[in-house]
Simulated assay, not measured.
Amino acid sequence: MEWNKKLQNIIDYVENHLQRKEEPVSNDEIAKMAGCSFGFFQKVFSYMNGISFAEYVRSRKLTLAGYDLKSTDLRIIDISYKYGYNSPTSFTKAFQQFHGVSPKEAREKDIELAVMPKMQIEDKQKYSWKLERKPSLHLIGKTTKISCVNNEHFSKIPEFWSDCQKNGLYANLISLDRGNPKGMFGLFGYYDENSNEIEYSIMVISDADLPDGFTKIELPEATWAIFDCIGMIPLSIHKGWKYLHEEWLIKYPFKHAPCPEVEWYSDGNSYDANYLSQIWIPIIEED
Rank of each mutant, 00 (worst) to 15 (best):
F185A: 04
I205V: 05
K251P: 04
V101Q: 02
T143D: 08
I121A: 00
Y83F: 14
L139M: 01
G231Y: 03
L173I: 04
S195H: 05
G179A: 04
M116Q: 13
G240T: 08
L173F: 05
M33F: 11
P88K: 06
P253W: 10
I146G: 08
E23N: 12
W3G: 03
E108F: 06
S147H: 08
S155H: 13
A208K: 05
T72D: 02
G240F: 04
G179T: 04
S52Y: 08
Q278I: 07
F214P: 04
V204W: 05
F38I: 09
A114C: 00
K145A: 07
H153F: 11
D12C: 01
I281Y: 01
A106F: 03
I284E: 09
I217N: 08
K5L: 12
T89E: 13
I281T: 10
L62Y: 00
A106Y: 02
Q8A: 02
G66I: 08
D28N: 14
I226E: 00
C148R: 11
V101C: 15
Y47F: 14
T143N: 07
W248S: 04
E261L: 06
V57Y: 07
H138P: 07
I76H: 02
N86A: 15
N4H: 02
N27K: 15
L7T: 00
I205C: 03
F188L: 13
F188A: 15
K118V: 11
F98Q: 04
S277D: 05
K104R: 14
